[in-house]
Nucleic acid binder design. Structure first.
Lengths: 354, 354
DNA sequence: CTGAAAGCGCTTACAG
DNA sequence: CTGAAAGCGCTTACAG
């Protein structure tokens, strides 16, 4: 490596030009009180003139502060281990930045228990050192209450997985759910003829207030209104146990011998794959969501044909990094970052990065 | 942010325990000469004991050296602007790390002119300050000669876009070409019936030595040998002008009125889309490669049905970052990083990140 | 073979 | 309202 030529740099140069000490420069840099308007204006001018950019390394090295980030996401549940993946993303980001004195405190709630969400938000709000927050706002009303308090305290927060636009988070990292449904629909249009029957299957305890499912379904239906139509049958399964799914599907498959394709609107597609495997039916195409271990197994066995996935690990990773960059560098962050909507099948699955 | 408690840290603590100065500690840390075996051993032991990790920020701040990276990739050509995208990735990485005294010097060669490649490698080798190199090894023999010289000089290099495994680069970032062909084939299996005719179309000046095309084609053919077969016709078009492509396709389409699908093995798929548009034929499915502006236009018009893409921008971005991390942190790098093989259609294209 | 000292570009008490 | 000085954890001449 070659030597760097030397020039008087940074705060020193500013101080020299403004004929003040570097401490005073530092004060205006951080907008701290105790500088006369006159010197402040002068220094600000020089900063602009020089297009001064602080050296982050030096700043970090000299500072003795720890940045405290908090996260609140669902814990993995009996129904799906989906939330393991975003948690990995949090760890990944944490590993990258812990050198710079960043701590991440992780809190979890139960997807099927609104009360647990409320309790966790209360636990978090007891802390006094919250510099930033990452949140999966599964319960909308409660998430609004929570983030309102954050705003009052001037704590920046980012949403992942689903958005609440009116809360004006620092950033949102997650899918565009409507287009996710459209993406599935467009693919399915290629896989079916007009006469083919398509089953849209929602499997979740609380479908009617599940924003994810509802929006995807809207996008899906919208697509087939605008494009060559298909015969679409919708079924809602509120009991997510395999026994219940099996019972319901048996009836459906029996009643509809020429069912061509089943589209499951979330990661529970593995339950359907298991059923199809058990009855030995391989001529029904099956499409679902999320790159999870048991889904991948069924994909490789040929029971699931396509998985749609929106990089849940990267969502959380980017969320943490956005908070970090905002707090550390005062960098502006992208308001909405929609994840790519990935189409995975048996032959490209081995290279997928979640 | 909360204050950090203070402990004696790093080189100072090591020096204290070893009863030497920090300069000596620094010497063994960097494996520099001039330390007695005895003190060296002692210091090494303490380093291990403490599980000492150097503070990169401090190291960077104190060092007055500039890291010099070189890149050699094709320039954009009349046939495709594909190579604009990796170049963006180089700029993206450069922007992130230029704060840390990294310079990236960019060299380009003409994809259709082997001599230009040789000339550029010679220009690069005239430099004496090469810390690392990123290379798209389009001409295999010449790339071997070049990287052999790099090895002699102890310069680490990474490959992008295509690999030469026996050269043992620091890393490779690019597609697994064989599986890329298989991915296209698997998708096409869903889009066709056994009786359908599929045209595999290679459009390039030098198909017979185009590693990319050949390996993709192998993967494609292999898939249909292992799985339910299709009638596949292969055509090689060595003249990449639109006039020539048009002429050849007119003949093919006329001779084969029930042609069902055309698969173009590289980014030249836009030429075929243009042709299909001109003759007003919308019932032939069209699949090709790469997320480039004119391809996307045809995708949105419904003339191209699917694009396969392997994140060329990210390839170059990761390549530069790998060199940087290796040189800066002495981090081990992944030998082979195969990019995901992405499937893009009209409805998910707007969220794709190249 | 080894060490004392200055410096990288900042932040942080402390003193006035 | 302002400045001098020490320090963050390293690297780099320089002296012996």
């Amino acid at each position: 490596m070659e030597k760097k030529e030397k020039v008087l740099n940074g705060v020193k140069e500013i101080a020299r030009r403004a004929k003040v000490s570097i401490a005073t420069v530092d004060r205006v840099l951080h907008n701290r009180a105790g500088v006369s308007e006159k010197t402040k204006a002068k220094i600000l001018e020089i900063i602009k003139e020089l297009d001064y950019k602080p050296n982050i390394l030096a700043r970090r090295l000299a500072s003795s502060k720890t940045m405290h980030l908090y996260t609140l996401i669902p814990e993995r549940s009996a129904e799906t281990d989906y939330w393991d993946v975003p948690l990995q993303g949090i760890f990944q980001a944490e590993n990258e930045i812990k050198l710079y004195n960043v701590k991440v405190s992780k809190f979890f709630f139960d997807m099927n228990d609104k009360q647990s969400f409320i309790e966790q938000t209360k636990r978090i709000l007891k802390e006094t050192d919250i510099d930033g927050l990452l949140l999966a706002p599964a319960f909308v009303e409660e998430a609004i209450t929570f983030t309102e308090e954050c705003k009052r305290r001037n704590i920046p927060f980012v949403f992942i997985n689903s958005d609440i636009p009116q809360q004006k988070s620092l950033s949102y990292f997650g899918p565009n759910l409507f287009h996710s449904g459209q993406t599935a629909a467009h693919l399915i249009q290629y896989l079916t003829k007009e006469a083919d029957k398509v089953l849209l299957l929602n499997i979740a305890k609380d479908i009617d207030s599940d924003h994810h499912i509802l929006r995807k379904q809207e996008g899906f239906m919208h697509y087939f209104q605008e494009n060559s139509p298909r015969t679409i049958v919708t079924e809602n399964l509120y009991d997510t146990s395999y026994a219940a799914v099996k019972k319901a599907l048996s009836k459906i498959v029996k009643a509809d011998p020429d069912l061509h394709l089943i589209f499951v609107t979330n990661s529970r597609v593995a339950l359907v794959a298991r059923f199809l495997k058990e009855i030995g039916k391989k001529d029904i195409l099956l499409i679902g969501y999320d790159f999870l271990p048991n889904n991948i197994t069924y994909l490789n066995e040929g029971l699931i044909d396509f998985l749609i996935c929106e990089k849940p690990q990267e969502q959380a990773y980017r969320g943490i990094k956005a908070l970090y960059r905002f707090l550390m560098f005062e960098e502006d962050q992208e308001k909405e970052y929609f994840m790519p909507i990935d189409i995975i099948h048996r032959e490209n699955q081995q290279f997928y990065k979640n």
